[in-house]
Computed example of a mutant assay.
Amino acid sequence: MRLDKFICDCTELTRSQAGKVIRQGLVTVDQQLCKQPSTQVTAVQQIELDGELLKIIGLRYFVMHKPAGYVCSTDDPDHNTVFTLMDEPMQSRLHTVGRLDLDTTGLLLITDDGQWSHQISSPKHECAKTYRAWLADPVDASAITLFAEGVMLNGEKHPTKPAQLEIVNPQECLLTIHEGRYHQVKRMFAAIGNKVEKLHREQIGSFKLGADLAEGSYRELTLAEATTFAAVAK
């Protein structure tokens, strides 16, 4: 690939910025000064920028146990973002796979692989997501059938897709949905006259949030785990 593109893939620099540092004489290839941005290089060559050895960072996949009080965006003037909990190189390239509300906790995926993200978050792939909801009022068993048939949400033209409701106790439920409408879980319970007091996402596809991942912490997914997520789409 071109030298300027290689530098972009290894740093936060734009293509024009990479070209500038190359022409300034700050880049060496196999210990030889190189001032041509179009020079063809390979990943096995030793390429240094201002004395620092560069290395291409491949696609990355993370799981986070999101705490309440953090937003799923790269920048927010009023709240901390989930990315303030991370310490990764080229962090600006990462994005969350879908979003969890400010007060919602639980399983959050983060990546820089747009195709992988789309497979999981796109409504057409119907990837299952399971939430534990604590409610203001007891839930009647009839809600199981209502959610399985689909409910109309306020302001929507079409009912929700069939969802699976498990009543753990009168005011605690597990709800599995296969789409991701705005505030969907909260609005579904509102549609049957109830209110979600607390919400926690436990599972996406077959992947469950492990008890070993403390709230506010994250880890990189293994290749096998990342591949499993890619296979959950229909």
Rank of each mutant, 00 (worst) to 15 (best):
P77Y: 00
T130F: 01
L209Q: 04
Q46M: 06
Q17D: 13
T104C: 11
I7T: 02
L53T: 12
C173F: 03
H79P: 05
L223M: 10
H79R: 07
I47R: 01
L26T: 02
L153G: 11
P89W: 00
Q91L: 14
T105S: 12
L199Y: 00
P37C: 09
L213A: 07
H125R: 12
V97E: 05
S16G: 04
Q32M: 11
T227D: 15
L221K: 05
C173L: 03
K5N: 10
D113C: 03
M86K: 06
C72G: 09
M1E: 06
Q40N: 13
P123G: 02
V41S: 06
R181F: 08
R93K: 15
H118S: 10
W134K: 11
G25Q: 02
K124D: 07
Q32H: 13
D212L: 09
K5S: 13
M90F: 12
M152T: 03
S122V: 06
I204F: 03
K35E: 13
T11L: 05
D113T: 02
K198Y: 06
S73W: 04
D50L: 06
T130W: 00
L49K: 06
R201W: 10
E220I: 09
L199V: 07
I110L: 05
I192L: 09
I120C: 07
K157S: 15
T74P: 01
P138Y: 08
I144K: 15
L109Q: 08
E172V: 15
G114I: 09
N194D: 12
H65M: 05
P138K: 03
G19K: 13
A224H: 13
I110A: 03
L13D: 10
V41M: 02
F229Q: 02
E166W: 08
L102M: 07
Q119T: 10
K161W: 00
E172M: 14
E220R: 12
E149H: 11
V151M: 07
L3N: 08
L174F: 12
P37L: 08
I110S: 03
P77N: 00
D212W: 01
L100Y: 05
K208V: 14
